[in-house]
Design a protein around this nucleic acid. Structure first.
Length: 424
RNA sequence: GGAGAGGUGGCCGAGUGGCUUAAGGCGGCGGUUUGCUAAACCGCUGUGUGGUCGAAAGGCUGCACCUGGGGUUCAAAUCCCCACCUCUCCGCCA
C-alpha cells in the first residue's frame, strides 16, 4: 500500500498513477474521508486526555483516603462520550483501511503509459529452429507420446488439471531440479520450501487480498488459501521483521505448486497446458536496500532469462505498460517463450519491483546503519520460471518429424540420461 | 481430537484493578577512568499515530500500544469471553 502521508503530499502524482493504470478509484472521496478520520482522532485524543487527567486525580484522592465520588461522576459522562466517538472512529477506520489497501502502486517513470498494446519489447533471444514439417501442438505431441493424460486429470479433479505420466512426469521433475540448482548454485539464492497454504494476513501482505479473493482457492473452515504463487509464503517469511542493513540483499528461491481458479477466463487458452488451475513454478524473491532495487530488478530478469537460454528456447523480454501492470508492481518485465506448434509467445515469467508497496503492507523493514532508524525494504520477485508453459515450449521447439521430442542438453543428467522422449 | 500450562519492549523476566511514567537484568548507544583493551561506574534507550515548529535532520506536545478481537469498570498488562500461536501429556496418523 501507499503511505497515507505520501498520498496527501502528492495528490497529483497519485491521481496520474490511477489514470495511467485505468484504475477506477475515487481519490477525492478518499481524501475527504481521511480528513474526517483525522478530525475524529483529534477530538478523541482530546477527550481521552481529559479523562486521563481526572483518572489521575481519582488515584490521588484514593491514596489520600478522600472521597472521589464527585470526580467519578464527572468522568462517567466523559467516558460515555468517548465510547460513542470510538464507535464512530472504528466505522470510519474500517472503510479507510480497506480503501487504502485498494490503491495500486505507482508505476515507475521509465515504463510506457497506456494499455497492453503499449507494452514494449525490450529485447529478444534466440531464433526459432527451422522446422521443415508442420509442427504439432504440445497437446497432440503429449497425447501421442502418452506423457500427459488430460482426460483422466479431468476425471480425478476437473477440467484444466494435468496428469503427467512416465517421461512427462520425469521432465517436470527434471526441470524443477535444474532450475533450483541453477539459482542456488550459480545465482546465490537460498532455497526454501514453504507451506502451500497461507492465512489471510499473508495474502493481504503481498497484495492478493482484498482485491483478488475470488481468484483463489479458499478453505472456508480454516480461512486458509492455496497459494497462487510462492511469492506469497516466501515474501511473508519476513513479515513484521526488522532485518539488519548488512544482511541485505536477501535472495530466496522456492519450488511450489501454484493454484489459480482462473474464474472468468473460460474460453481463453483453455486447451492443453496453457491455462491450468495447478502448475509448478520456481520462484525468485529478493529483499533489498531501496537504493539498489532497480539494479536488482535487471539482475532478476537476467537470472530468469538464463533458464530459457540454457534450455535453448527462443524468447523475448516485454516491459509492461502502466495499464497492464499488476496491482502491487511499479515496474514489471514479462518473459515470453516462443511455441512454434501454436505459433504463440507464451508468458513464462513475470519479474517485478514492488518498491516498498508490499513491505509496507507486510511491515518488512531494515535498520539503517547510519541513523539506526527502521525503514521499509524493497521487495522483488519473478518466476524463474513457470513450468506448464515451459513444457509446452520445450515440446514444441524440440519436436522431431517422427513425433519424438529431443531432451534439452542441460536436462539430460536430470533425466537419467534420457535423450529423446519417444513412443514406447 | 482431548487435558493442562503459557504469550509482557531488540532479548530474558517481574508484575491479581488506581505513584506502572511496565521493576530488575541482558544487549545497544553515549560518557568517566585508561598507554591500549577489558572491567568498573554514570547517563540514555521501543513502535505507531494526530497536532505543531523546522528547508531538512529533528524538536515540542497529545493519544494509542503488554499476541489479536470483544466485554466489565470512572479506571485493565491485571478481571471475563472468543480467536490465533507456543509448550507439555494423551489419542490418532504418513
Amino acid at each position: 500500500m501507499l503511505d497515507i502521508k505520501f498520498i496527501r503530499d502528492n495528490v497529483d502524482k497519485v491521481r496520474k498513477s490511477l489514470q495511467d493504470r485505468g484504475a477506477g478509484f475515487d481519490l477525492d472521496s478518499f481524501l475527504s474521508l481521511d480528513e474526517k478520520r483525522r478530525g475524529i482522532i483529534q477530538e478523541l485524543d482530546r477527550l481521552r486526555s481529559e479523562q486521563n487527567k481526572i483518572n489521575d486525580e481519582i488515584s490521588i484522592l484514593l491514596k489520600n483516603k478522600q472521597n472521589p465520588e464527585e470526580k467519578i461522576r464527572q468522568t462517567k459522562v466523559l467516558s460515555l462520550n468517548t465510547g460513542e466517538l470510538e464507535e464512530a472512529f472504528k466505522e470510519i477506520k474500517l472503510i479507510f483501511d480497506e480503501q487504502l489497501l485498494n490503491i495500486p502502486n505507482i508505476p515507475h517513470v521509465s515504463i510506457p503509459r497506456g494499455d497492453a498494446s503499449c507494452n514494449s519489447i525490450v529485447r529478444g533471444w534466440g531464433k526459432p529452429k527451422k522446422i521443415d514439417f508442420k509442427p504439432l501442438s504440445h497437446i497432440e505431441l503429449s497425447e501421442n507420446l502418452d506423457v500427459i493424460d488430460f482426460k483422466r486429470a479431468s476425471k480425478i479433479t476437473g477440467s484444466n488439471f494435468i496428469l503427467f505420466k512416465g517421461k512427462g512426469a520425469l521432465l517436470e521433475r527434471a526441470l524443477l531440479n535444474f532450475m533450483l540448482d541453477l539459482h542456488t548454485q550459480k545465482h546465490g539464492y537460498i532455497e526454501v520450501f514453504p507451506p502451500f497454504l497461507v492465512n489471510r494476513a499473508s495474502m493481504t501482505g503481498t497484495g492478493q487480498l482484498p482485491k483478488l479473493e475470488e481468484d483463489m482457492y479458499r478453505l472456508k473452515d480454516d480461512d486458509l488459501f492455496l497459494i497462487p504463487t510462492a511469492e506469497v509464503p516466501v515474501t511473508n517469511i519476513y513479515r513484521d521483521d526488522v532485518l539488519e542493513e548488512d544482511s541485505l540483499p536477501v535472495y530466496h528461491t522456492a519450488y511450489t505448486a501454484c493454484f489459480r481458479r482462473e474464474a472468468g477466463s473460460y474460453g481463453k487458452d483453455t486447451r492443453g497446458l496453457m491455462r491450468v488451475h495447478q502448475f509448478d513454478k520456481v520462484e525468485l524473491v529478493k529483499f533489498v536496500n531501496p537504493r539498489d532495487s532497480y539494479d536488482e530488478l535487471e539482475r532478476l530478469v537476467a537470472d530468469a532469462e538464463e533458464v530459457l537460454q540454457l534450455l535453448e528456447i527462443p524468447y523475448r523480454v516485454v516491459m509492461l505498460a502502466t495499464g497492464d501492470l499488476s496491482f502491487a508492481a511499479s515496474k514489471c518485465y514479462d518473459l515470453e517463450a516462443y511455441a512454434p506448434g501454436m505459433d504463440k509467445w507464451l508468458e513464462v515469467s513475470s519479474c517485478s519491483n514492488f518498491e516498498d508497496f508490499q513491505a509496507r503492507r507486510s511491515n518488512i523493514r531494515y535498520r539503517d546503519k547510519k541513523t539506526g532508524k527502521k525503514r521499509f525494504v524493497h521487495t522483488l520477485n519473478g518466476s524463474g520460471i513457470a513450468l506448464a508453459r515451459t513444457v509446452v515450449a520445450i515440446m514444441e521447439n524440440n519436436q522431431n518429424p517422427d513425433g519424438s521430442i529431443t531432451v534439452p542438453e542441460v536436462l539430460k543428467k536430470y533425466m537419467n540420461g534420457c535423450e529423446v522422449i519417444k513412443s514406447e
